[in-house]
Write a protein that binds this DNA or RNA. Sequence first.
DNA 1: TACATTTGATATGTAGTACATAACTACATT
DNA 2: AATGTAGTTATGTACTACATATCAAATGTA
Lengths: 230, 230
Amino acid sequence: MYNIRSGKELERITHKTMADIVEIRLREYLKNKALRPGDSLPKETEIAESLGVSRNVVREALSRLRMLGIIQTKKRTGMVVSSPDIMGSFERVLDPMFIDETTLREIFELRLILEIGLAELLFLRKTEADIAELEKIAKKQKPTTGQHSFRIKNEIDFHGKLYQMTGNHTLRRFQDMLLPVFGYLVSLEKVPIIGKVSHLDLVEILKTGTKEDFRQGMLQHLEHHFSKLH
Amino acid sequence: MYNIRSGKELERITHKTMADIVEIRLREYLKNKALRPGDSLPKETEIAESLGVSRNVVREALSRLRMLGIIQTKKRTGMVVSSPDIMGSFERVLDPMFIDETTLREIFELRLILEIGLAELLFLRKTEADIAELEKIAKKQKPTTGQHSFRIKNEIDFHGKLYQMTGNHTLRRFQDMLLPVFGYLVSLEKVPIIGKVSHLDLVEILKTGTKEDFRQGMLQHLEHHFSKLH
DNA sequence: TACATTTGATATGTAGTACATAACTACATT
DNA sequence: AATGTAGTTATGTACTACATATCAAATGTA
């Protein structure tokens, strides 16, 4: 059960436990049998017997798949394949607590990139109602009375609304998860930095401008973030 | 252990198993004690006793954290907190097999958006050597002899190189994971569609053009994908 | 003293048994 | 036909026992 990757360097020897192996075998099983959500799996005892391991080990592997939402279990009925919430599983590890500084910065960049590309979907799907709501959020922000915590909340509300306006639910949830990372890094700013282009300016562009205008506007709005990249 | 959300509608009753609860409690424990990678956890039997559950249940919960890379275990030494590979955990569920059509489309959109925003990092970090390599990849593609599988591979190589050139490792891996989804959707195309702007054109823009030129070029290159959105 | 070897202790890994519990099925009751 | 009851079954939980890797201290050797 040892695994030495024969490359240039000596890599870490990783020991696979039975639970690891069973997890892999179960994934292969799902793939090979091309099981779709709703299809049912053999019962725990059968799996254990087939693989020649204790039910205990099987349950540890199943517990993982269950957590990810790949399978669902019910007493007496047994187990069925399910469609996992892909963002939910992402969320399980995306905690600034665990993540090293480098990755945090990279995730931050990822967000900036998304924000620029957003214009595409935004101009495809924006509605009058959405723009009105966005404007309401933008107007709440008073540049002078800068309570730091409020500023961040408003920032989140505005950009969150933008993501929601794309009509892409997955994208919206992705941003939701990136928020803690974003918040963490912004909280390091001592002085609140206001971009040359305000939220209200962006709303105006959405009303009367073009996709390209919006991209440029967003770039200006996030200028102080981009300028920190190197 | 029942949970009835008292709202307007009757919502589904969700049953939390002990393993679910223990998983949550362990996450809280890590948070509250602000444990950092390297710090060690109590041993299984102690956790089981503290929480008043069997070691079995504790192991199922730990098995989940272990899979995500949040903790690592060694015999005799015990368990230590670890920094998870965030993309790795994503990978575990991002299989076109499990994902429903709607989410697949949303992920595809996500990729298109990234591709547009990419220009920011690209023009910040491109090097002569990278551009040379990119050009080599682009030249391999012969528009006439269009073996479908080769075309896809070349497509992946080119765009993969672009992501790699951003110097953002997380982004690169993110794209890697999106590839199966991308490949799946592109494979549905009967006739290979060539954009108005070719790979070689994009290379040329990288050499002599501006960020904005590149964004426009990429938009043209992916035009037939964008045109399908609504 | 310095180093190598052996031995024991310890926490995780695996196996197996037993029983609790939810939920389906079929049958009985009104 | 609707409701209630009993039996069956697969998962959920608990407990025990032992295997195994690994660290640390004790022992032996130069």
